[in-house]
Amino acid sequence: MITIKKPGLLSTIQDLGRYGYQKYGVVVSGVMDSFSFRIANLLVGNEENTPAIEMTIVGPSIQFHQDSLIAICGGDLSPSIDGQTISMWRPIFVKKDSTLQFGESINGARAYLAVAGGIVVPYVMGSASTYVRGKLGGLLGRALQSGDQVEIGNLTELSKKVMDHLHTNGPAKWFVPFYKPINPIIRMLKGHEFDLFTDASKNLLINETFTITKEADRMGYRLSGPKLMQKEQKDMLSAAVSLGTIQITPDGSPIILLADRQTTGGYPKIAQVISVDLPLLAQMKPMDQVRFQMVTLEEAQHLFRKNETYLTDIKRAIKLKYR
């Protein structure tokens, strides 16, 4: 079991999301940065979709009531255990009664705490993900609060091996190399309504810098920058949107739809962030600047497969190391 001593800014239990129910209007939710989340789970020997804690800018303080194996991936929110700084992107052995804390936000916006065995909460519609607005999933459908206690699940054989190894041989000296871009370029695809926009607006989207506004949360990021206008204002029929859809509101501002987006939208879709760049976006916060680059669907899907291969390689490497 673990106890949340302080919740941090917004800490929620998430997995890869609630799929299969969008036709009933049920929001997908799930982690914002799936790359970091999946690696964190792999590092502790979990299946990669095991529920973990997503924390935001200010991390929580968590007490462990049993010996545990954890990994923290994502943004660097200065994790420490009982005052000792710990490394990210590698498995860490945590002794019973230790307290994990976070400090200054060094980079990124979100970090993931995976615990071997996973965080145990009831599944709602096939997922443990918390959707706070809908009071759904996670722990009682809400963000974690001081005093909350959650159980840790049973360890996989692999988790036991990793834990034994760290217990005997001390901290892991290796870590997963990760990509930490500064002011990244986010790649995107043309949206279906791209050509409804003026040539000037299309050029602005590709060539100008946009700033993430304060209206940036799990539902989506509103951007400020040059206004993007349609050739003529047309009313659209509501249709499906997806993770990374860039909609333009009537005043010309882009909104990038993220984990807690509604299932349908009625604004024109100018573009779509490619799947492999969504984790980068998830690590950006208000005032950060972003530039876009257009790629083709073929490139996006090849990058998708490359990323999956990378994760499979990591999974295999961990299995080999601790067999």
């Binding site: 799929y19 299969g20 036709k23 509501s238 249709a239 299932t263 998708f304």
Partner: peptide
């Protein structure tokens, strides 16, 4: 197929590009 949704004039089918390309 991962899932599908319907709207006024459209059906949207979600898939895994690791399995099939567009």
């Amino acid at each position: 197929m991962i899932e599908f949704t319907t709207a006024f004039t459209t059906i949207t089918v979600f898939y895994n590009p690791e399995v099939l390309f567009y």
